[in-house]
């Protein structure tokens, strides 16, 4: 039996990698992947606590989270596609028109 804190450590590591990707990368696809990583870090947390408390609710919630992530990817890819059509690039620092 692996202690719960290891799972938490893994989750924190995955979250930090995702956060790092969002903060430094320019590519919209990498952005999307980084967001997925952060989402899955949360899922790991849910499953880990579910295991510790012997309560299945957390795992059910994690399944919902994965379905949600799939839907989110579809929308995200759509946005990236539109981005490319309008700006002929998927660099997220180029389109800055949506401001005051």
């Amino acid at each position: 039996m692996i202690e719960t804190q290891w799972y938490l450590l893994l989750s924190a590591a995955v979250f930090s990698i995702g956060l790092f990707g969002i903060l430094v990368r320019d590519n919209a696809l990498l952005y999307l992947m980084s967001v997925e990583l952060m989402l899955n870090a949360a899922n790991i947390n849910l499953v880990a606590f579910s295991l510790q408390h012997g309560n299945l609710t957390g795992q059910v919630f994690a399944l919902f989270g994965m379905a949600l992530a799939a839907a989110e990817v579809a929308i995200g890819l759509g946005i990236i596609l539109v981005l490319y059509r309008n700006f002929e690039t998927i660099d997220v620092t180029v389109p800055t028109t949506m401001r005051w």
Partner: peptide, 17 residues
């Protein structure tokens, strides 16, 4: 205050963090 709304999505992410 509106100056902080730059339009660059990464800045928003940084502010969130």
């Amino acid at each position: 205050v509106r100056r902080i709304q730059t339009g660059v999505v990464r800045n928003y992410a940084a502010l969130l963090t």
